[in-house]
């Protein structure tokens, strides 16, 4: 009567059921990449490299979102956290002439914005959507008000080739010749994945997001776990902001996040609240964006607005087609009231 539960299946069947689609998709991607690489190595490398670049702020934003939501706090303020951090990071660098201090400034700003969100949603038990909106509005307002035309920084974070790895064909340029925040993003994906699913911290975080009272009755501090995860998430969003000004562009412009914080939310859902999934989703979105750029360069005779739609349309198609239902943490968005 009941469908087989995963736990009762033999290992290989379990693997196929759980990762079958993913493995298949991976193979298809690998084959197409190789095909294009042998046709035109240069363009292929360029497309893949910009895929990783596009994906970096998205995957960082998604990590921020999913840390919060796994702990039960919806964060729609990622956009604002990124924007504010991008701005502060830029200012710090402009004043101190140090890119690294700028990155630290950005991360701290993100963490502070996270603290603000945690205070509103955990302590004040404010509606979390409103809390996130407050953060977005604050960020747009403050950065717009204090923005000074003409402020500039010298250079930006440079790629660090990883020795001989960087000279490998195809993957060398794409994965092993990146600037620091891009490396950090990739490392963070695996770190957060490990922390969430294989450590005590992760077990408690997920418990607090699914059934806070159950966690409370076994002595887990629900408020602390929520605060900590939202603040950590904010710091990661801060890194995304620093990426934008200090690694990608090298200057600040008004509302330069341009919706990336919201796309990061979609990426998080798309990746089913898992860091690896979010990374896959961010890379996919990055790839479509890179292809879109290439198509524009190639000068195809289609209005550019339509070409600009490619990433979004593809995302909707894949989201609707492959991903199936996403399971939201049960206590997501619900303030915890101690008895």
């Amino acid at each position: 009567m009941m469908a087989d539960t995963y736990s009762s299946l033999p290992n290989w069947k379990y693997f196929l059921r759980r990762y079958g689609v993913l493995t298949g998709l991976g193979l298809v991607v690998l084959m197409t990449t190789l095909y294009f690489y042998f046709r035109d190595p240069q363009i292929t490398e360029a497309v893949l490299a910009s895929t990783v670049r596009y994906s970096t702020p998205l995957v960082l934003g998604a990590l921020c979102g999913l840390l919060g939501e796994r702990a039960g706090v919806i964060n729609i303020g990622i956009e604002g956290q990124m924007l504010m951090s991008a701005f502060v990071g830029f200012l710090v660098t402009a004043w101190t002439k140090s890119l690294w201090l700028g990155v630290v400034g950005g991360v701290l700003t993100g963490a502070l914005m996270g603290l603000l969100l945690a205070f509103m949603s955990v302590t004040l038990k404010l509606d979390q959507i409103i809390g996130g909106t407050v953060i977005n509005i604050i960020a747009i307002g403050l950065t717009g008000y204090f923005y000074q035309v003409g402020l500039a920084i010298d250079g930006k974070l440079k790629p660090i080739p990883l020795g001989p790895l960087a000279n490998l064909p195809l993957v060398g340029k794409v994965f092993f010749d990146n600037p620091p925040i891009t490396y950090a993003a990739i490392v963070l994906v695996f770190v957060v994945q490990y922390v969430l699913f294989y450590t005590k911290w992760g077990l408690r975080t997920r418990a607090v997001g699914e059934h806070p009272r159950a966690a409370d009755t076994v002595g887990v501090d629900v408020y602390f776990m929520r605060y900590a995860n939202v603040v950590l998430g904010g710091a990661i969003a801060g890194l995304a902001g620093a990426f934008l000004t200090l690694e990608a562009v090298g200057s600040f412009e008004r509302v330069m996040t341009n919706g990336r914080g919201f796309i990061a939310l979609a990426v998080m859902l798309f990746g089913k609240y898992t860091p690896l999934g979010a990374w896959g989703a961010a890379l996919f979105f990055g790839l479509t964006s890179a292809i879109q750029t290439q198509v524009q360069f190639a000068g195809v005779d289609i209005p550019h607005q339509f070409i600009g739609m490619i990433p979004y349309v593809m995302t909707i198609l894949v989201l609707a087609g492959f991903v199936g239902r996403t399971r939201v943490p049960a206590a997501d968005g619900a303030p915890y009231e101690k008895e």
Binding site: S7, L203, R206, E210, A214, A215, T217
Partner: peptide, 11 residues
């Protein structure tokens, strides 16, 4: 507890 304090999605 009367209403179980178990996380449904956990093992």
């Amino acid at each position: 507890h009367q209403h179980f304090m178990l996380v449904p999605v956990f093992s």
